[in-house]
Amino acid sequence: MSEGRSARVVVVTSGKGGVGKTTSTAAIGAALAHLGDKVVVVDFDVGLRNLDLVLGAERRVVFDLINVINGVAKLPQALIRDKRLENLYLLPASQTRDKDALTEEGVGKVVAELRQKFDWIVCDSPAGIERGATLAMRHADTAIIVTNPEVSSVRDSDRIIGLLDAKTEKAERGECIDKHLLVTRYHPWRAARGEMLSIDDVLEILSVPLLGIIPESEEVLRASNLGSPVTINAALSAPARAYFDAARRLKGEQIAMQVPSESRGLFTKLFGRKAA
């Protein structure tokens, strides 16, 4: 492993469960790796790990984050290299340990060590606002707030934005953490008919710049069934294209914001929009 890098730490968070944090972590992590960067995705959901399953690495887990924190294993022993993308690694969470085993000092040391080895550290936060969630965001340079266009998800995102602005290392240093909104499970036609909060509604309420819009798609479920990020499993599908665009925006590229559709053309034209 080449040393001397300095990774950007990204936390994927939401407050509410089931909105697509793990799916998005896997998809964006794989997209960044596919674009040539060296990426580690870290599961912070101690006791309820699932990033291993979504990445298809569930049978290869030997050591986990807490083993590394406790000194039972060295970091390179716990990192699992993806079989499809040689630039993509997973640091799994513990399935059996108590979540109190995550210590702030321990997480800080692991993140500092990972920073030397990777370009991107993508932290998959557990739901809620407890210890696991606050530790996942603690060292982040950038936050991706995953939101569904639905009232409870938007409310919880607002709460998480408050925590990001108060409880992260960057916030405590008086700096502003870089925040991006990723709207998932979006139905353009429902929003157009006024049946679902629109992107503009969500942006107006949360006041966070938009990273991407992931349309609802059966490809996402299919990919998780197979244990492969949608950006690898169906790279040309609408959600995968939306995740690739989001990954490119994270890298600083300017890409026009649009909702990719399965049948290219009509929806893209109708709902095409400028990047935030």
């Binding site: 639905e150 009232v151 938007v154 409310r155 929003a191 008919r193 006024g194 049946e195 679902m196 909060l197 629109s198 509604d201 107006e204 309420i205």
Partner: peptide
């Protein structure tokens, strides 16, 4: 649609 009501409540 009910979205405007959701927006106002939020």
């Amino acid at each position: 649609g009910t979205a405007p009501i959701a927006r106002e409540r939020l």
